[in-house]
Write a protein that binds this DNA or RNA. Structure first.
Lengths: 159, 159
DNA sequence: CACCGTTATGAAATAACATAACGCGTCGTC
DNA sequence: GACGACGCGTTATGTTATTTCATAACGGTG
């Protein structure tokens, strides 16, 4: 998260208490709607992502998994992440090898992030990708998903 | 490359013979212009990328490095890749952990790829990113670089 | 309830990807 | 010819992710 910079990353403060409960509850509901199960490991990984102030690496999650400090086994976390991504509850940021909870309302949207090289904050946003993909259509590609990661400097970080 | 699909990936056939020589020569020239050195390991890694029909993983390069089958040491290849990326001779595709030679004319362009989930082909293209980044500017981000990776199905692959 | 197919978890090991750290040689400069 | 910058080779290690096999939980059907 903010290790590389003295500034708060501030963009998406981690959830706690009621807000966290609400977010987890919303996830439960959406699972119920779609016959999917928010099982304990999946719920735990989502909770860790929601609590965090910034992107978490898989092995951060593995280390933090146990309530009493015992790490999870890697596949436990990787499987949960796969599930959470499939349902749109989380996104992987390829250029960081890290994960964030989804912060947007819309379902099935494409993952796009503004990543601050200074403070490490990763802000999800909704880009207008249509013009960018005109060339793809022209080339005959059927685009199924897009990831866009813009690196730069966030408003809170200095020149 | 095409392992997952019986179709030729055809998009960027690897270079051979004269075409390969020309491409390497062009890289030499551009290095000479900028006081950079296309040393033997750098040249060899670029050659392997240019010869390939599709994206190569770092350990593919490591395995193929020696003319007589001896592998390179990992840092040799990673250092060469870092150099080639810095000069714009190669790009890393994050979602594949793989590398391709740059196929575009323009210097300093942003890396954008259409990746076929079926045959593994990765076609570089030049997207119109301005509309997508309007939201970034509005949020106060100073964007320095962008990677865009679109997954889907290429024209040569079946339904 | 007994069964079975499906889905998910637990655990061990290992594979795949990437970098740190050190020392040596070469080259350009003063 | 001393120096510094750069690049290379090498060893070792760190980080990220998957394979494999075994077990457990759930949901439907007779």
């Amino acid at each position: 998260m903010g290790e590389a910079c003295h500034h708060a990353d501030g963009v998406h403060p981690g959830l706690k208490g009621q807000a966290l409960k609400r977010a987890l509850g919303a996830a439960e509901s959406r699972c119920a709607d779609t016959q999917e199960r928010l099982t304990p490991p999946r719920r735990r990984v989502l909770e860790l992502l929601l609590e965090s102030d910034g992107p978490l690496k898989a092995y951060d999650l593995i280390a933090a998994y146990g309530e009493a400090g015992e790490p999870a086994k890697p596949p436990t976390v990787y499987r949960a992440l796969e599930f959470l991504e499939r349902l749109g509850f989380a996104h992987r940021i390829e250029s960081l090898n890290a994960y964030v909870p989804c912060r947007l309302e819309a379902d099935g949207h494409m993952a796009a992030f503004l990543i601050c090289d200074c403070c490490g904050a990763a802000q999800e946003f909704e880009p207008d990708l249509a013009p960018a993909l005109v060339a793809a259509k022209a080339a005959g590609y059927a685009v199924r998903s897009v990831t866009l990661e813009a690196r730069g400097r966030c408003p809170a970080c200095p020149e």
